[in-house]
Write a protein that binds this DNA or RNA. Sequence first.
DNA 1: CTGTTGACTGCTG
DNA 2: TCAGCAGCCAACA
Length: 122
Amino acid sequence: MKESAKISDENRDFFDAVYEVTRLIPRGRVTSYGAIAKYLGSGRSARMVGWAMAASHRLPRPVPAHRVVNRTGVLTGKHHFGENRMQVLLEEEGVRVENDRVVDFEQRFWDPGRDPELNPFD
DNA sequence: CTGTTGACTGCTG
DNA sequence: TCAGCAGCCAACA
């Protein structure tokens, strides 16, 4: 077996986990790349989450990638949606965006590690 | 194989 | 407060 194939296989698992968590983000809420990476064990850096988001557009099932922003609430991935599509999608969910940044980011922030559904023992 | 790039983050001065 | 920098890891030329 090729070692490169093994590495790709691990990446696939990581991608799947990222997409799974991303789909759990409640409507009207947002989270960060780092929060997802941390929830998955911080095994890989937050850059890998962003990398996964970039590839999420080709998936057969849609991923709410517009709900993932950077740690300061800035829509760093907006360019991957087209001009202003990411902001429009967020505003349609009631998330206000000003100057490419989520308004009341700390209130809107959703941490997968703090969701009682995901952490019944917390 | 080496260097560059990227939807990031935390530390430092 | 904020710009700069290093760590991060896979893809790409």
